[in-house]
């Protein structure tokens, strides 16, 4: 059971901004844009952040990672199951690395 001041500050900061955003939605409910540019922008943020997170990891990866990414995507589209998709990706990267090394 250990932590550091840096980690506590980061986590408390994350918690504060999260509850602030959630509470602001309710408090400003009557004044927020329901459609138009700002609303569309907010809706697109999560997908764009995840795409920005995944893309560099894939282009800098080895062929094993690229093959595993295809397997991950394929299994997720078939099963819609996050855990199955992750397991397929991990298993594929493990096997392809074995094949390449051997």
């Amino acid at each position: 059971m250990h932590t550091t001041p840096e980690a506590v500050i980061a986590i408390l900061g994350m918690a504060l901004v999260t509850i602030a955003v959630k509470a602001s939605g309710l408090l400003l409910a009557d004044r927020l844009p329901r459609d138009g540019f700002a609303a569309a922008w907010l809706r697109h943020i999560p997908g764009a952040v995840l795409a920005a997170l995944v893309a560099p990891a894939l282009v800098t990866g080895s062929p094993a990672e690229v093959v595993a990414a295809v397997a991950t995507g394929g299994i997720f589209i078939l099963t819609r199951n996050l855990f199955a998709a992750m397991a397929a990706g991990v298993a594929t990267v493990y096997l392809v690395r074995l094949l390449i090394a051997g």
Binding site: E6, A7, A10, L28, L32, P46, V49
Partner: peptide
């Protein structure tokens, strides 16, 4: 701890959670 990106961590939480503005407003 010395290399923990405190600013980016908080900023990322803010940006990723901004969509909650739309969700909680409907409540």
């Amino acid at each position: 701890p010395s290399s923990l990106p405190i600013g980016p961590l908080i900023l990322a939480a803010l940006i990723v959670n901004l969509r909650y503005l739309l969700l909680t407003a409907t409540l």
